[in-house]
């Protein structure tokens, strides 16, 4: 459905997207995860045809964005990061306007606007001006506007930023359902949980580069290998450290004298924890704390970049 090949974009000398490649299959829900400023919006801008890449190629259903921009634009719906609506027009008028901009006739637009309002749960407020809406309701209309023309591919750029949990859940459920009904989705976020909840395949992007790409399963596999057990001890005993290193499932062992802890990289922590405790007792080392970093995308991001996602 979508093929992004080695796209590059820089502003002045600032390289914002530095050679990103990924593909999205029909019916898939693809997550693009990365911290603020990673280049997510820029990538989406290039796919939606409003930013011209300096290099690389983007294809939708085999059509090139360079030659068939208008055809591609008809196939995709983009939910921008900002609330791009007319505040003094009603929700319904906004939806109808955007629908007509995608070629819907007046009657089609009316019918579809009612459907979409129903879908995003705002039928009762159809006639009210957008400026009277709460942040969450605006977000929902913002999404609705991109659904008017029933796009084959829906690209959402951080659609849940700055809203209440209730609206957020509503949106996530809506997206899940859209995907279930066959719509291909690209979902951008810097919230781990959202991407984990919605997407089967995930790309992690940082500083304009794709640093990890694969199915959720693939990524967790890699993660499991990167699990860290942090052990707090009363002394850094050489013998104990060497014994720990000899365990099959243990990779690197890093002693930290500054706070008397040991970081132990393991592939299967359930099996290893017991053994470590046993070895400690044998070596007469007191273990006063033990912390296992649960595998999730957050820790994967941490292990890949050394930084937390929310920085």
């Amino acid at each position: 459905m979508l093929q992004v090949e080695n796209v590059l974009k820089s502003y002045d000398k600032n390289e914002v997207v530095r050679g990103i490649t990924f593909g999205v299959h029909k019916g898939e829900s693809f997550g693009l995860l990365g911290p603020n400023g990673a280049g997510k919006s820029t990538t989406i801008g290039m796919i939606s045809g409003i930013i011209t890449p300096d290099k690389g190629e983007i294809k939708v259903d085999g059509l090139s964005i360079k030659k068939n921009a208008l055809d591609i634009k008809r196939k995709i719906g983009v939910v921008p990061q900002e609330i791009a609506l007319y505040p003094t027009l009603s929700a319904k008028d906004n939806l109808m306007f955007w629908g007509k901009m995608y070629g819907l006739t007046r009657n089609e637009a009316i019918k579809r606007a009612n459907e979409v309002l129903e879908y995003v749960g705002l039928s009762e407020r159809a006639k009210e001006k957008i400026e009277t809406f709460s942040g969450g309701m605006k977000r929902r209309v913002n999404i609705g506007a991109s659904l008017m023309h029933k796009p084959e591919l829906l690209i959402m750029d951080e659609p849940t930023v700055g809203i209440d949990p209730q609206s957020r859940n509503h949106i996530l459920e809506t997206v899940k359902e859209l995907n279930k009904n066959g719509m291909t989705i690209i979902y951008t976020s810097h919230y781990m949980e959202e991407v984990e909840f919605l997407c089967n395949r995930i790309g992690i992007i940082d500083k304009g580069k794709m640093i990890a790409l694969g199915t959720k399963k693939d990524l967790f596999q890699r993660l499991a290998e990167g699990t860290v057990i942090k052990v707090g001890v009363n002394k850094l005993d050489e013998l104990f450290l060497n014994k720990v290193k000899e365990i099959d499932e243990v990779g690197k062992v890093i002693p930290r004298p500054e706070d008397l802890t040991i970081e132990i990289f393991v592939t299967n922590h359930q099996k290893v924890v017991g053994e470590i405790i046993t070895l400690a007792v044998q070596a007469n080392v007191n273990v006063h704390s033990l912390e296992v970093n649960e595998p999730n995308l957050e820790s994967l991001f941490l292990s890949l970049t050394g930084r937390s996602l929310r920085d």
Binding site: G49, I50, K73, V78, P80, I83, A84, L85, P87, W98
Partner: peptide
């Protein structure tokens, strides 16, 4: 500023 211009350019409109 409200980015509706951006959204307009995302529609199939020259």
């Amino acid at each position: 500023t409200t980015e509706t211009l951006k959204r307009l350019s995302m529609t199939p409109t020259g």
